[in-house]
């Protein structure tokens, strides 16, 4: 499942759960006063609720941070394919504009003027990955494309009046036999 769909479903479930709890409590709010031990019951539920959230948080943090999802910025080992990307108001300079699927691509992203956002959109119009393009810094973005096709780069950091026009395109082609992943 693509990441955006997973996020969407988890979010809807989370908000749905919050909504159900509120609706239930509001429905109960007009009823006769609860018995004396309400505070103790409430504290006991809170302890378990707190523990559940802590355990879930630790598990999710561990699962999403190992391996660390951002490429090592100080690595000297160059990827098999390297693309230089420079943002400037209001265009991208990308070289080369053709890469192979199935083999890691290293995007070295920087800016010649202001902050830009370097977001890669797949042919189905979904973002597959992104980084920022910041003056004075080069961000190293590693990504392995799985599907050939025309990909677009859009600027996702507001950079002035033609920000929305700052779009570039590159092509991902199928790997040939003998290409090393």
């Amino acid at each position: 499942m693509i990441m955006q769909n997973e996020v969407w479903i988890i979010t809807l479930c989370g908000i749905g759960l919050v909504t159900l709890v509120f609706v239930w409590v509001i429905g109960q709010s007009g009823k006769a006063p609860a018995p004396e031990q309400l505070q103790q019951t409430s504290n006991a539920i809170r302890r378990w609720w707190f523990l559940l959230l802590v355990v879930a948080g630790i598990g999710i943090a561990y699962a999403t941070l190992r391996p660390y999802p951002i490429a090592n910025q100080r690595s000297n080992a160059a990827a098999a394919q390297i693309v230089d990307a420079v943002g400037r108001q209001w265009s991208w300079q990308i070289s080369p504009t053709r890469v192979k699927a199935g083999i890691p691509v290293e995007f070295d992203v920087t800016s010649a003027d202001v902050n830009h956002g370097f977001a890669i959109y797949a042919p189905d119009d979904r973002i597959v990955t992104q980084t920022q393009a910041m003056p004075g810094y080069t961000n190293r973005l590693l990504y392995t494309f799985t599907e050939p096709g025309k990909y677009r780069v859009m600027c996702l950091e507001y950079c002035g009046l033609a920000h929305h026009n700052m779009v570039a395109e590159f092509e991902v082609v199928a790997a040939e036999k003998g290409d090393q992943p």
Partner: peptide
């Protein structure tokens, strides 16, 4: 804060940041 916390995950942020 449900969608906010989820977006605070680096892996998610890579596809949701500034959308």
């Amino acid at each position: 804060i449900v969608p906010a916390i989820i977006d605070g995950t680096i892996t998610v942020n890579k596809v949701m940041h500034n959308t």
